[in-house]
């Protein structure tokens, strides 16, 4: 049952992204092009998602734990640091350039659209590159601390 419901969650997400126009880079760029051919549609995607998620999360968090797991795995970090803001700023630049974000490109990989495939492959490479860089800086910091 858990497997089925998780699959359905993925399906609903993919349908929402596809129907809403998030997976259409022309629409994404036009959403940001307030000074040009502005298309405000994507504000409604976000609005619709939040209108369901805000009350939905509230209901869910009344429970002691999720249906099938022992606890909720929700991020607890509340510190706004350089890494968060720098990373998010970089993400926005890439989103603006390509018009795809990760959640938008992943479902439409099954269309085998070459632009989607290329973007998603580059996205995966980027994730691994960032993890390597983060490990490298972590190790260097640990070595510096050890040397002191």
């Amino acid at each position: 049952m858990e497997k089925l419901l998780v699959y359905i969650s993925g399906l609903l997400f993919g349908l929402g992204v596809s129907v809403g126009g998030m997976a259409n880079p022309a629409k994404v760029q036009n959403f940001f092009d307030v000074a040009g051919v502005w298309d405000p549609s994507l504000a409604l995607v976000m609005g619709g998602a939040l209108a369901v998620t805000i009350p939905g999360y509230r209901l869910v968090f009344r429970r002691q734990k999720p249906l099938f797991e022992q606890k909720f795995s929700v991020p607890t970090n509340r510190i706004i640091d350089r890494k968060l803001i720098g990373g998010s700023a970089i993400f926005g630049i890439g989103w603006g350039i390509a018009g795809f974000c990760p959640g938008a490109s992943m479902p439409v990989v099954s269309t085998l659209n070459p632009d989607v495939l290329i973007f998603t492959a580059a996205l995966i490479v980027g994730i691994f590159l960032a993890k390597l860089m983060m490990n490298f800086t972590e190790n260097r910091r640990a070595r510096t601390l050890a040397a002191e």
Binding site: E2, L5, V6, I8, S9, G10, L11, L12, F13, L15, G16, V17, S18, V19, G20, G21, M22, S41, L42, L44, V45, M46, G47, G48, A49, L50, A51, V52, T53, G56, Y57, L59, V60, R63, K65, P66, L67, F68, E69, K71, F72, S73, V74
Partner: peptide
């Protein structure tokens, strides 16, 4: 279409939190 898509994304999001807590 965009509002409907957003609602579907919201349902998916709530469903995953309700079932798995993710």
């Amino acid at each position: 279409a965009s509002l409907g898509g957003g609602v579907l994304i919201g349902l998916a999001t709530v469903l995953l939190m309700w079932t798995r807590g993710n």
